[in-house]
Amino acid sequence: MLIIGEKLSIIAKRVREAMLKRDKGPIQEIAKAQWNAGARMIDANIGPAEDEGEELMQWMVRAVQEAVPSPVCLDTTNSKAIEAGLKAHDNQWGRPLINSTSNDPERFPILELAAKYNCQVIGLTVGKGGLPADAEERCAIAAEIMARAMEYGVPLEDLYLDPLVLQIATSQDHALHVIKAIKMFQELNDPPMKTVVGLSNISNGCPKHVRPIINKHYFALLMYNGLTSAIADAAEMGEVAKTIDIIMGETLYAHSYLEM
């Protein structure tokens, strides 16, 4: 299970302020905490970043990689900012992951970048016309994204399919659609397609004390159904990931398995 540390998001006030002031301190502190908790990639979400996006993404990539020996997940809708981030990325600890392409024509150029810079890319299974209704629709979109990836020269091993986790408080039935989609995505290719979710979206809008409970249980169910990676808070998810790995036989049990 690859956990992509999610805490570096422009949505968080502390991170946003640090980004605006170009203050590396809080950014690096969060990156280190995620790394130490078991994240093996760090998500850098700078939002739409219409102004100064290129410079901001480069600054973020460098700040993260100065602090931890980790690849970075470049999370923005600004493709120029992504390209700038790819140029700044140090690949010695792994290739970067672009978040994301989709079935929206505006997001197709992202695949060109993925091919040009030989990096990995998330394919979010949404199109231009609103949200997918169920697992089957997610799969149909996934197949289109896969075909397009091959057309652009991105190997399917470098594509992570994201079924788009929705809020349980407003879209309860999608919780199961997403689990089913994770299962179905794997059958679209041999070897199975890699998958990723933005985990904490499931509990967005829920009371604060409930959120980690929903996140953890949902994560366990997704892992059981073959999820390969998640953008999530490593500190919150570490125990779940290690325990499910034990239950699934991915890691050999020892009494101190949580400490490893």
Partner: peptide
Amino acid sequence: NLSKQLNI
């Protein structure tokens, strides 16, 4: 399992 545990 105890072998792994001892190494840990």
